[in-house]
Amino acid sequence: MKDKCLDIGIIQAFLDGEVSHDASARVSGHIALCDACASMLAEAEDQSTLVFSALEREFNTLVPTQRLWSKINGSIATERDSLPFWQKVYAFLTVALVNPSFAAAASLVIVIGIFAAVWMNRTPVSTDLAVSVSPPPQTAQQISTVSMPAVSLSSPDTDDREIEPARASTSDYRVERAAYRSESRRTNAAPAGDASATISNGYMAGEESYVRTISALAKTVEEQKDGGILRPSERIAYERDMAVVNDTIAKMKTEVKRNPKNESAKQVLYSSYQNKIDLLNSVSQKEELLVSLK
């Protein structure tokens, strides 16, 4: 055994426990008899101790086992399922929009969508214009049934309740588009003679002329204001003032019905009618002024 010393590689493998059982017994036997190999083993042990002490923290780090990985994956899946929809979308977008191409495509879709919406909203305006250029001939009753419901948009409980033919179909007129009004107008048309008689009924002296004037004006104004004659702020103010006037008219009409001798209520009613006419006129006058400046 003394004739041939062990290779340092075998000694290292012996130290690391990487040799077979028989080889390990042979190496152990040789080192017991060979001082040089024993010395090499001691040297290798010292070096190993030094290296292992340096790498101790690294070696002590916990390595996740397969079971641990399964647990982690399970938790992630559970958490993902419990996330609200918008958080999932947000997470998706966060990942997806990092890509400039995807971001550009998304922006393109948004912009096209906005333009499409604007474009589609222009169509009813053109329809209104066409209607206003060549209005169909109408009877007085038709005018009333068309315009009065439009007035009741801002305040449903207004004086319009008095007009019997319009009453049943008031709710149908809540859509502001001109096309829909045209449809309803045809279905609610009544013979002119009957219409006049109905309008004349139930009004105080002088009230009918107010109602007729308002009806005629309201028709025009509805088309004008839907056509964009009013700016948004003006439109809001107009609707607010119209609601106030309609509210007053409704209250006063109820009061006059209850007590026909209440002159104050009548005066306020007439005054409110006049305010309504002025309000409607203001829109027409604005358009006239704009046209005159053209």
């Binding site: 998304a106 333009f115 305006v125």
Partner: peptide, 30 residues
């Protein structure tokens, strides 16, 4: 991206409006 797309769309829209849809001539510009 949005700015780039909006610029391109904004430049092309007048042309589309000019050739595609006639402007309502009877309506006063308000």
């Amino acid at each position: 991206s949005a700015a780039a797309v909006a610029i391109v769309a904004g430049l092309s829209l007048p042309a589309i409006a000019h050739y595609g849809v006639p402007a309502p001539v009877d309506k006063p510009a308000v």
